[in-house]
Structures are given as structure tokens and as C-alpha cells.
Design a protein around this nucleic acid. Structure first.
Lengths: 179, 179
DNA sequence: GAATATGGACCGTCTGGTAGGTATAATGTA
DNA sequence: TACATTATACCTACCAGACGGTCCATATTC
């Protein structure tokens, strides 16, 4: 198999394991098996577990970022489009969010400095959201509320029913057009 | 030493380790050392690591809950007091939040069903917040935004400066009086 | 002397990582 | 063109250390 796609397949295998089974199941053996490769083969591509997680986080962050960027690009209304992109992508694409959760958790657990790429992406988003043609306090609150939904998903502590959730989404979205 | 206080000291030692060093450092040996006890002694009080984490989560959840309850009880304005309590306690007491993070992360990592006590607490809070004498959508958004701050703290991905944070806090708090 | 509380040696298992090998493809060179 | 060399992409076997947990001895208290 050609190198690059196998390397990405390994990263996908890793985040799948974390998302489905938890961080303690993220072992080199498990990743190797999930990716259909031997441990030696795995370590050929990523020379340590830490490097593997580092690349996994970067991969997830860049995927997430490009998804939000393209969503914003497709928005015809200039004002609030970046806030809307963040809101829409995070509120909707639930499955992929789980992978992102996986990356965050793994990074935080193994070595918090691995969160740096995420940090950068968030700093950029926050800047965009504060300069989105609307009141920055309001757009930041929209972002934070979106993150709140995310947190609830992450820990499966979401006591908000889907009907209520939809109403909240609608309210937040309406705010991205006002003022 | 008397039994109960030692048991609690062990739980505190455990959450301290997770908060300061991460989940992978939460070993029985490390907890025993932090609590100034031998591993045998530790296992006398908690017969397995899973039980230890279970009790730790319950302990943290009950602490957090009583803090919010007492804050709400001290609020003289009936309308919105539960939402305010959640907002104030979570926005302010940052250090103790780290312990709560610790509990959530450890539970999620070791066995997601250990999150059940947290789940119950949150369900109760959500109910309170939706019946706080204000528009439930608004109070829920306040809660979610508060959680968003929390998430950012958890992963150290908080690109919001403290001045901005204060403005957001003021705005959210103002909302708990309106309507 | 029984219950409670703690210490410490020990064990089986799992894990990250190493060592060293093989097969195939790419590249150089006579 | 034929042959030699290297680089790429894996695999198997293995090891040293860490970890959860057991077992049993010992204090201390009531």
C-alpha cells in the first residue's frame, strides 16, 4: 500500500479506538490490529506512541478546521458567517465530533503539550468570532453555548432533550443575523 | 487515624493526582504515596481502582452540588437564582473546578458508567434551570455558555482574555434577572 | 480476642519499545 | 541490459518495567 494513506488509516484507527473504547484501550497493539498491521509496522510509521497521538491531534484539528472554513465560505451572508459556521458544524456533525473529543482526551491524558495545535486553531476561531460584524460579546456567548453542547456530548451528561436542543439552536442561529 | 477522614483524604489525593499530572499517573502506588499510606492500606479502604474512582466521582459531584445548593439558598432574589448559582460557582471557583474535571476525565477513561452520579446531578440542575422563573431557553443558554467556559478551562484552550470573560459573565448574569 | 487499620513482599499480565530480520521497489552503475 | 545497492514498508520475537491486585503479617483499639 502507498505510504500516506496507510499513515492516515493508522490515525483513523487510533481515534476510532479512543472514541469507541476510551483512552486506556489506545495501545500500540490495539491500533496495529485496528489498522490491520503489525506493531512493528506501526512503529515504523510513528516511532512512538506520543508521536502517534501528536499526529492524530494535528490531523483531527486540521480536518475540523477545514470543515468550518468551507462552511463559512459557502455562507452568502457576510455578517456572522464565521460564528454560524462554528455553530452549525459543531451542533450538527455529531459523529465526527466524537473523533475530535477522542483527540482532545488522548492528548490531554498523554501529554498536555500535544494540545498546542488545538490551541492555535481555537485562538484563530475566537479571533474570527470576535470580528464577525456583530457584537463580539454576543458571538462569543454563541460560541461558548455551542461548546457547552459539546461538553455535554463528551461526557454523555446531556440532559437536554432534542426538541429543546433544536429551539436553542434556532435561537443562537437567529442571533447570528441580528444587530 | 480515624477511618472516614482517611478515606476522604485518599479521594482528595486521587483527584489531586489527576488534576495535576493526568489520568495516566493515577496509579494505586501514586495515590497511596500521595495519601501517605501503603498500597495495602489503600486497598483496604477501596478494594479496587474502579471502586476508588467511583467513590471519587461521587465525592466530587456531591461537593459540587452542595456548593451550588448553598449558593442558591443565599440568593435573596427568587427568580433566576438557580441559574445564577450555577453560573457563579462555575465561573468563579476555578481551582475546585479542576478537581471536578479530574473526576470526569478519570471516570470517562476508566469506565463511563462511573459517570452516572454526575449524570444524575446534571439532570437535576437542568430541571432547576428550566424552572427558574425565566425563559427556559435563555437560562439553558446561560448554562451552556458557562459550560463552554468550563470546557475551555479543561483543555486549556481558552483564548478569551480575562477582561472579555468578565464582560461575558456580566452579560450572562444580567440575563438571569430579566423578563 | 475480635474487629479495624496498615504494611510489605510478591505475582501474572500488559505495555511501550527494541532488535533484527524479510520482501519488494527504486535507483545507480558497468 | 544485468547486476548491485539502497530505501521503503513491513513482520516476529523479545524484554524490562509498571501496574492492579493477592496474601499474609502486624499493630492498635474496643
Amino acid at each position: 500500500m502507498e505510504g500516506t494513506s496507510r499513515k492516515i488509516a493508522i490515525l483513523d484507527a487510533a481515534s476510532k479506538i479512543v472514541a469507541e473504547k476510551g483512552i486506556f484501550y489506545l495501545t500500540l497493539d490495539a491500533v496495529a490490529e485496528e489498522a490491520g498491521i503489525s506493531k512493528g509496522g506501526l512503529l515504523y510509521h510513528y516511532r512512538s506512541k506520543e508521536v502517534l497521538v501528536e499526529k492524530m491531534v494535528e490531523h483531527l484539528a486540521s480536518n475540523y478546521k477545514s470543515k468550518i472554513d468551507s462552511h463559512a465560505a459557502e455562507d452568502s451572508e457576510e455578517k456572522g458567517k464565521r460564528t454560524r459556521a462554528y455553530l452549525d458544524v459543531t451542533f450538527k456533525n455529531t459523529y465526527k465530533n466524537k473523533d475530535m473529543h477522542a483527540g482532545l482526551l488522548a492528548a490531554k491524558a498523554i501529554n498536555p503539550t500535544l494540545l498546542n495545535p488545538i490551541h492555535e486553531v481555537y485562538t484563530e476561531w475566537q479571533h474570527d468570532i470576535e470580528n464577525d460584524g456583530l457584537d463580539p460579546i454576543m458571538t462569543t456567548i454563541i460560541r461558548l453555548a455551542t461548546d457547552g453542547i459539546w461538553l455535554a456530548d463528551l461526557f454523555d451528561i446531556n440532559p437536554i432533550d432534542s426538541e429543546q436542543k433544536e429551539l436553542i439552536y434556532n435561537t443562537l442561529r437567529k442571533w447570528t443575523f441580528e444587530r
